[in-house]
Lab assay of single mutants.
Amino acid sequence: CHSECLGNCSQPDDPTKCVACRNFYLDGRCVETCPPPYYHFQDWRCVNFSFCQDLHHKCKNSRRQGCHQYVIHNNKCIPECPSGYTMNSSNLLCTPCLGPCPKVCHLLEGEKTIDSVTSAQELRGCTVINGSLIINIRGGNNLAAELEANLGLIEEISGYLKIRRSYALVSLSFFRKLRLIRGETLEIGNYSFYALDNQNLRQLWDWSKHNLTITQGKLFFHYNPKLCLSEIHKMEEVSGTKGRQERNDIALKTNGDQASCENELLKFSYIRTSFDKILLRWEPYWPPDFRDLLGFMLFYKEAPYQNVTEFDGQDACGSNSWTVVDIDPPLRSNDPKSQNHPGWLMRGLKPWTQYAIFVKTLVTFSDERRTYGAKSDIIYVQTDATNPSVPLDPISVSNSSSQIILKWKPPSDPNGNITHYLVFWERQAEDSELFELDYCLKGLKLPSRTWSPPFESEDSQKHNQSEYEDSAGECCSCPKTDSQILKELEESSFRKTFEDYLHNVVFVPRKT
């Protein structure tokens, strides 16, 4: 048989008469490798580009789960590009990614509803959504962080984005990388972005840091009482949809009607710091009717980097990364020049730590249904340095008659930039024990000054392991946590139920 035959053949030295091919099969003959313009397919066939392209389009058009959109890589027609490569849609070739590779997620039936953290986790790592997304989240724990972890990498949506009755959302900033909504599939009414009845939605994105392009379709905003109209108009300008909307697409009466839409800028007039305090004062603000001013709200939190936005980490279910302080308005003076500047002394802060701070007014709604208010920009203030805590785990070892090696770990709280350490030492008198000992005694162990690591005695271990207080009263049991108490109650309830079950099964009433 021919060298490319495997198993047997019907005619000697003829690659077209093989029972099976050793390498690849091409047009009725066995070959060692697939010549151009053919590609290896499933490690035994040679196919042309049209064959591989037909497989790709067949799966793409069917949208069946589990099928493969075949691509070409290293002269092979394979189910998908290997790690580190992405497909070129024009020629199906796998090309190296520039940075992290995109991950295209194809949605069944063309859309997916995100109504819980669990459903959001199914899209973790996706960068391109081939379909439409509907966000409908009523509640949950730590929602802002969970949504950002699972949806934060999405850069492109081919269909539309719909935010509907998501009472738990305060902001859409968890879509931190969303840059493009194509609108290839539109919501009824030709809408590519749809926001309806979101009672706590206050911000779409921080438009000073976020760009969003909507290729096709219109915007729809109705019944978002805490979303200011200025935020919607800003989205029109940034996304390129200005002029597409009709009169009733953006409701003037049901958007922002319960919001404090600040239209003035508060400026800080005085800032002073110490290692654990920050004193702030800002310019006074009074609405047209000074009785509408209820006070100020001061927001602050630790910020290692200057990239904080107002609604980071917030949701309507209680999660809030900001510390909020309510401040009463100052006494009002008739003389504008003698107006008191409101302020606040922030206490209990960490030394040498940068804080993000902003302040906003708290006002009631005027009778004319106009909203007044003022808010400052987010500023960054760093507390002063102070003395560091003591170095940890000092170790001293003498390696000769004239040297001592000293080692330690950095302090747990540096409280500033540590530039150097101060080492103090003092000579001590020799131990009298060394002169009084009889060095001729056998088995004498000389006193040693070398360091030995501390260890816990058996008594201390027994005390720590004991669940009861000892007789001397030195140790006591740790208080039980809520989960331990709940577990004990469940076990007790189970024992009672099981005992009742045994009584009912074992003891049967005697027939009379």
Rank of each mutant, 00 (worst) to 15 (best):
G189S: 05
G313F: 10
C317Q: 05
E155G: 14
C261E: 03
S171W: 04
R369T: 04
D197S: 04
M346E: 06
Q354M: 01
L406G: 00
G125K: 05
G125I: 15
F311K: 07
P410V: 06
F193S: 00
I357T: 06
S269V: 03
P410A: 15
D326G: 04
D249L: 11
W408T: 01
L108F: 11
R202I: 01
P288S: 08
S269T: 13
C105W: 00
L143W: 15
K360W: 14
P288R: 06
I271Q: 02
S132Y: 00
L147F: 13
L294C: 07
V325S: 12
G217R: 14
Q339P: 08
K277C: 14
F296C: 11
A356R: 03
N200W: 10
S274N: 02
A316T: 09
L331H: 08
W207K: 06
I188C: 07
T383I: 01
D206P: 09
D393T: 07
Q354L: 09
N200M: 05
P287A: 04
N142T: 10
S333K: 05
P287F: 12
T371K: 04
D292L: 13
Y355E: 00
T113E: 13
L279V: 10
L172H: 01
W205R: 02
V104P: 02
T213E: 04
Q314E: 06
L147D: 00
Y285N: 13
T215V: 07
F220K: 11
D276A: 13
L186P: 09
I163S: 02
R247A: 09
N255C: 14
L252D: 09
N211D: 08
G256T: 03
T371C: 08
L133Q: 00
F174E: 01
A195K: 00
S260E: 13
S402C: 04
P288Y: 02
A144D: 02
N320T: 12
E148K: 06
Q258A: 06
G243Q: 15
R244E: 05
A385H: 09
N320K: 02
G139W: 05
A316M: 03
S400E: 15
N200R: 05
Y305I: 06
M235W: 14
S396M: 03
L108G: 07
S260Q: 12
T323L: 14
P225H: 04
C261I: 06
E109A: 10
F174L: 08
G140Q: 15
L172W: 00
V170A: 09
L153D: 06
I395K: 10
F358D: 01
N340K: 11
I378R: 08
P287E: 14
I135R: 00
S401K: 13
I134P: 00
E146A: 11
E109P: 15
R202L: 13
S398K: 01
N190G: 14
Y300P: 00
L151A: 04
E368P: 06
D367R: 11
F311H: 10
N141D: 12
N211C: 08
V128S: 10
D326H: 01
S239P: 04
V397P: 14
I271S: 02
K301Q: 13
T383W: 00
K337D: 15
Q258V: 12
S116D: 06
P411V: 13
G243V: 01
P394F: 02
A374D: 03
S166H: 02
V104E: 13
A149K: 11
L133F: 07
K360M: 07
S132R: 01
L293M: 12
E302P: 10
T323A: 10
T113P: 13
I250F: 14
L279R: 07
F299T: 02
Y160D: 01
H341M: 07
Q216R: 03
R138I: 12
L153V: 13
R138Q: 14
N248F: 13
A374F: 09
E283F: 09
L219Q: 02
F220A: 06
E237A: 08
C228S: 15
L147A: 14
N150R: 08
P304D: 10
L196C: 05
P336K: 08
L266Q: 03
E146V: 05
F193H: 01
S208G: 15
E187C: 15
S402R: 09
L151Q: 00
A251H: 14
G140E: 12
I135T: 03
D289P: 09
L392C: 07
L107E: 12
R370A: 02
P342L: 12
D289K: 03
L161M: 06
S208I: 11
S173F: 09
Y194M: 12
Y191W: 04
S239G: 08
S158M: 10
I357H: 00
N224S: 09
E155A: 10
I395R: 13
L294T: 10
K218T: 14
S230Y: 03
D326S: 15
R244Y: 15
S171H: 15
D393H: 12
F358G: 05
T213S: 08
M235P: 00
L186N: 04
H341F: 09
A356E: 04
D249H: 01
K267L: 09
I114F: 05
F193T: 02
K162L: 15
V390I: 06
Y305R: 07
G183A: 10
R291S: 14
G256H: 10
L229R: 08
C126G: 00
S208L: 14
L212M: 15
A144G: 05
L108S: 11
L252P: 09
R369D: 02
S400F: 02
K301L: 06
E237L: 09
K177N: 02
F221P: 00
E264G: 08
N334A: 07
K209F: 11
L266I: 07
L252C: 13
Y223Q: 03
L161I: 14
V397L: 07
D384G: 12
I154C: 05
G348E: 11
F275L: 09
P388L: 02
W344N: 14
G256E: 11
N130W: 05
D312M: 13
N141Q: 06
I188F: 03
N255H: 05
L107P: 15
E264T: 06
S398L: 11
I271R: 01
P394K: 07
I157Y: 00
C228N: 08
G217V: 00
L298V: 04
P336Q: 10
I154A: 03
D276G: 05
T361I: 11
D197R: 07
E111V: 05
K218S: 01
M346G: 03
A303F: 04
L252K: 07
L204S: 08
G131I: 00
E187R: 11
S396K: 13
W322M: 03
